[in-house]
Design a binder for these strands. Structure first.
Lengths: 203, 203
DNA sequence: CGTTAAGCACACCAGGCGGTGTACTTAACT
DNA sequence: AGTTAAGTACACCGCCTGGTGTGCTTAACG
């Protein structure tokens, strides 16, 4: 029928045009930005006919939203589910996204789309809240006095590092990690379970 | 001659079209974003003929750069030059931009233009560095152990609050201020000269 | 006064944008 | 083999974009 929910695999019949489109969007939207990437260009890169693209997505807006939804590639779960680390180490590991990451696409989308009502903007909000929540969970696990506050604070540090990295074109995550270490040490009761040799936590 | 450097007042002869253009750009670029504001629309809002606009600015890019340059409206100097506050209080006052401020236009421009070589992007970088430098100066004045580091940290907090406010559509500056208070207290020797009784720093 | 330049009105451009219509091919499943 | 749907090719749409060309009016200044 018209709607058959062909499933995330997309490999029911054709040659998987949908996946190619999304894959191309991941590349182009990140490299060039959303507004600077036209549908013509995107379809060409995906080696997909324009008509096909508009049979999978009602419009660019929907594609953009899907582009954001298909992101998280373990960036979130890949950090928080590491059982080899203590909760405290996991909190700090969230700042090790150092390698090359261009910029948090959620911030970029919110700025580029400029419309809080846009589906993608709404998803960006949800995602940011989810990250803060997981940070809070981990903070609670680590025994923080006020886990929600610490989670929100660490989330702000991550966003600050992302924004600053973008504007200054220089990695700001080490600075954010240093702040995080201070905040964590301040929020956690001084249990001797982990050797905390941070400097200068005077107060 | 063709170039006569008519001066910033612009009131040499005409009715000050240039100022009206810049004024309109301040409004529209902030409200709608740079990419979503066309030159037609902008000229209409400024009540300026399109032709006149292109006689003042060689292109939209130049106007965007000028738009950023004409910003600072004491946001920077208005905070750091307050002699009624102690250096420590001045550092914290930088987080009181709470009222309504839509979002730091420098971050927005860097994201929207998406080109680090764009004049406006370069200026945004310079401005961010300048803010960090002034924060560092004030930190030094306050007697911080490592003023450069504290300045960079506080700058990151401001950018984080700005970005997060934009994405979440909720004021994130109080959280940033709370972190700032912790960092400042940690960085400053515990001199009794100023009563450090800031509220909301629950940790 | 006349010169000079700031500003204006408006038609116009090429090109990109998001998005469609139509007629076609291909291939999986029955 | 026949059905069915996924995918294709490509011309085409109206609209808006940044940007011009041309000829005109207005007003400050010497």
């Amino acid at each position: 029928m018209t709607e058959l929910e062909k499933g995330p695999t997309g490999s029911r019949r054709g040659r998987g045009a949908r996946e190619r489109i999304i894959s191309a969007s991941q590349q182009l939207f990140r490299e060039q930005g959303i507004n600077r990437t036209g549908m013509n260009e995107l379809c060409a890169a995906a080696e997909v006919s324009k008509r096909t693209a508009y049979q999978h997505f009602t419009g660019k807006d929907e594609l953009v939203a899907e582009y954001l939804r298909r992101f998280d590639p373990s960036v979130l779960s890949g950090v928080f589910d590491r059982t080899d680390l203590t909760p405290r180490e996991r909190l700090l590991a969230a700042f090790d996204i150092s390698p090359d990451t261009p910029l948090c696409p959620y911030i970029a989308a919110a700025v580029e789309l400029h419309d809080p009502q846009h589906p993608a903007s709404q998803y960006a909000r949800d995602y940011k809240k989810a990250v803060a929540a997981r940070l809070a969970d981990t903070a609670r696990e680590a025994g923080a006095a006020d886990p929600e506050q610490l989670g929100e604070q660490l989330a702000l540090l991550i966003d600050g590092a992302a924004a600053r990295t973008r504007v200054l074109d220089a990695d700001a995550f080490p600075t954010a990690a240093a702040i995080a270490a201070v905040l964590i040490d301040n929020a956690l009761p001084a249990t001797a379970g982990h050797n905390r040799r941070r400097e200068g936590v005077s107060s």
